[in-house]
Design a protein around this nucleic acid. Structure first.
Lengths: 156, 156
DNA sequence: GATCATAATGAGAGCAAGTCTCATTCACAC
DNA sequence: GTGTGAATGAGACTTGCTCTCATTATGATC
């Protein structure tokens, strides 16, 4: 599993270069539509849904956006977050965005990124690896999300 | 018909009593169909999808099963797990099944329960509470799942 | 046990997120 | 510039899940 590259968040041009490389590695082309899609996700600065993307870039065809999100996911550029709401959320995958977790609002479905300290992450990975080993399970990544009510939805 | 050796801390009769109480607390009735549904989930001993349920109990109407899973979720009897596959998974909620996490297979979508030690759980809760507090977020529960390949799907 | 108000049921219609199709257009190698 | 195969996009299609509504079961009260 681990690529242990501890890269800091990338500049826009570095991002495009990295995405291009990853797509090429999977024999995909970095077309104008895919570049626009990457820029929309970058500009959002948080996980986005298809409606978010189409509102931000109405010239992108939904069917192509879905297809390209799939391509980006296969290439390791983007992660799909299925939190249970109507839509899936997408954000940059790990080396493009440092390892983090999510606050998922059970009312409005919004997702916010949060960062935990490295020591806890290490403990979690260690425990999960142990438990996975016992089950003959090959770990790829973990997801640690907190479900509750966001500041906007309050305790109502 | 009575299986006794699941991970559930409750006996079958205690389970029914608890479910009945929780439903009543929300002004729901514990009907025959809901009792059957609870028994199917108990017998499975692991998270189940709607197809799983209907195969195990073909006399239950899918529309009623969906509605009743919703009722059971609202009453805190059952948890919905949306792992990204085609179907949602359901299992008993926390006091009916002790706190645990999931090994989610990225290939076949299967979900297996795993248990972590209490100390790690406490650390996780502490860190998440701190981070949530900073964001004005009201925590309800956390989900910590390991994504990878199950023993059956191998490392291929 | 009989009666009644109301919740639950179930078959099928309906909805919507996401996928597939296919004719057209673009990206890249040469 | 040319050619080949991938990418595009509009819309049809699939499908997990929800809604509708006439019928039936449930639990409270007598």
């Amino acid at each position: 599993m681990g690529d242990r590259d501890t890269e800091s968040p990338l500049s826009t041009s570095d991002l495009h270069a990295t995405v291009s490389l990853r797509l090429a590695r999977h024999d995909y082309r970095y077309t104008r539509g895919r570049r626009r899609l990457v820029e929309v996700i970058l500009a959002a600065g948080q996980p986005v849904t298809l409606p978010n993307i189409v509102v931000a870039a109405p010239d992108l065809a939904p069917s192509s956006v879905y297809r390209n999100l799939d391509v980006l996911e296969r290439s390791g550029v983007v992660n799909r977050i299925t939190a249970g709401g109507d839509h899936a959320y997408f954000e940059f995958a790990e080396p493009l965005l440092s390892h983090h977790h999510h606050l998922v609002c059970v009312d409005c479905g919004s997702i916010e990124d949060v960062y935990l300290d490295d020591e806890l992450e290490a403990s979690v990975d260690r425990s999960l690896a142990e438990v996975a080993g016992r089950a003959g399970f090959t770990p790829l990544r973990h997801s640690l999300d907190l479900h509750g009510r966001c500041a906007g939805c309050g305790s109502g």
